[in-house]
Structures are given as C-alpha cells and as structure tokens.
Design a protein around this nucleic acid. Structure first.
Length: 139
DNA sequence: GTTGAGCGTT
C-alpha cells in the first residue's frame, strides 16, 4: 500500500507505509521521474495519432509539442509518445488527470519524461598529478 | 485486419 498525502496549513506531510510491522517512507521520486514539462505517454492504441493526443491534453495547458513514435518501416504507431507543455505544473496536472484514464479503449500510462540528454556527459577531468601516482600534490 | 512493455527520427 502506498503512503498517503495529507495537507495541513500549506504543508504536505507524507505518511509512512506500514508493511510487515515495519515503517517505510516512500520518496516521491522513487517510483516516478522528477517533474518536467515533458510527459511520456504510453499505452496508446495503435490508431491514436498526434492530433487526437493533442486534443486530449491541450485542455490542461499549452501544449508546445506532441510526438508519437512510429515504426520506421511500417509507419504504424509504436504505442507511445511525448507531450510537451509550456510549464511543469501544466504537465503535472495533465499527468494526474490522464494517467490510468482509458483512451480509445486502452488505459493510458502517463509519467514524466526522462530528461533528454543533449550531448554526451563526458567529463574530462583536468586534474594534476593523475598518472604519476601523485594526486593534487602541493608544494 | 496480427502485437502491448516501454523513454524520442530534430
């Protein structure tokens, strides 16, 4: 059973989970991604296109981009896509409202998209002393 | 006429 959220005077308190006599505190980002303005929408029916997906999500905020992944060869939908909003709270509102909701006969699976990494996270440390058996030697 | 968990063609 998941923890409940109660709100007391503008402060959100997360109640612990009780399982097998032990207490568990579930972190908000444990089972979901940190909030973005981009939503990952899966569970789409094969016949859902970007226009119908836009119409379904545009009522929660300003949708800046809708993209459905299609198969490179057959051109058919892969059953998932992405919806970009102009703000995070709009995406969050749309997620809470549309997640698990049936759409064209199939339950939708909505979650925050993973952060698109632009550029390889290759870090080239310019440390002195590496390779000589001496790290940050000072004199 | 098919299939069903997932994180994306600039």
């Amino acid at each position: 059973m998941k923890g409940s959220l109660i709100q007391i005077s503008r402060r959100v308190i997360r109640l612990p989970n009780i399982l097998n006599g032990r207490l568990y505190f579930s972190h908000p980002s444990a089972s979901s991604q940190p909030p973005n303005n981009k939503l990952f929408v899966a569970g789409l029916s094969w016949s859902v296109d970007e226009k119908s997906l836009n119409d379904a999500f545009s009522s929660f905020g300003q949708v800046t981009e809708v993209r459905i992944m299609y198969d490179k060869e057959t051109g058919r939908s892969r059953g998932f896509g992405f919806v970009h909003f102009s703000k995070d709270d709009e995406a969050s509102c749309a997620k809470d409202a549309m997640d698990g909701k049936a759409f064209l006969g199939r339950p939708l699976r909505v979650s925050f998209a993973l952060e698109k990494v632009r550029g390889a996270p290759v870090v080239v440390p310019r440390l002195t002393g590496i390779g000589n058996g001496e790290i940050n030697k000072t004199r």
